[in-house]
Simulated scan of single mutants.
Amino acid sequence: MMKKAACLLAGSVAALALFAGTAVAHVTVWPKEANPGAYEKFTVRVPSEAEDTPTVKVEVRIPEEVNISRVEPKPGWTYTLTRDAEDKVTGIAWTAEGQGLLATEFAEFNVSGKIADDAEALIWEAHQYYGDGSVVAWAGPSDSDLPASVTTIVPSENAGGYDEREGSLSLTLSIVAVVLGALSLAISLRKGRPAKTS
């Protein structure tokens, strides 16, 4: 019994040593704020903390409030999509083709999609797989040692994300500015032209 307890204690200590500091360097999804109803690019940032074994796979559960439509290819990594009965993407797993991420390395994986109009917060649960077979589940509350990443949904004027509607408005305003500038230049040139003499 004592031997078994000692083994369990040793295993716990080893796990703590392996992932010391992971509460700071954990899997996160950016941006941290976004608009309801917006089309957004999400970046999954994956640091590798273990000194003696690389990160070889990361799996992210897509929040119900996000409809993923595109995945950016990542050299050296393959990805697989999990879909529900309605063909909606519910999860993405990226797997290293080579040795994966070493202790001092990180990688970013980009996806894009639309946020639901009634979304309030996006909770991104992730599982980080290491070469030695260990798995870290970043799926806890914000005050836990292994928190899930959260994107807060805020009113459009306060968020730092990209909204296609805002992009269209900016383009329209730019075109109007160019037209007004050209018109102003034409008027100035016409006024400066010397009068004809008979």
Rank of each mutant, 00 (worst) to 15 (best):
E120N: 07
N158D: 15
G167I: 09
S168W: 12
V150N: 05
Y162W: 08
E164M: 11
G131C: 01
Y130G: 05
P141M: 02
G160Q: 03
S134G: 09
S134H: 09
S134R: 15
A148V: 06
S170M: 10
T152Y: 13
N158K: 15
S142E: 14
V136D: 06
I123C: 07
A159L: 00
V178N: 04
A148K: 11
L122V: 05
S174I: 03
L146P: 12
V179P: 08
G167D: 14
G133N: 07
E125H: 08
S142H: 11
A139V: 09
I153H: 02
G140C: 01
E157N: 15
L171K: 12
I153P: 05
P147A: 10
T172M: 05
S156I: 09
A121S: 14
V150D: 06
H127Q: 14
G131A: 02
E166T: 13
E120F: 12
V154R: 04
V179R: 02
L173M: 15
G167M: 13
G133M: 00
H127D: 12
E166D: 15
V176E: 08
L173N: 13
T152F: 12
D132W: 06
I153V: 04
T152L: 14
L146T: 11
I153A: 00
V135D: 04
T172G: 08
D132Y: 02
V135R: 14
E125Y: 01
E164K: 14
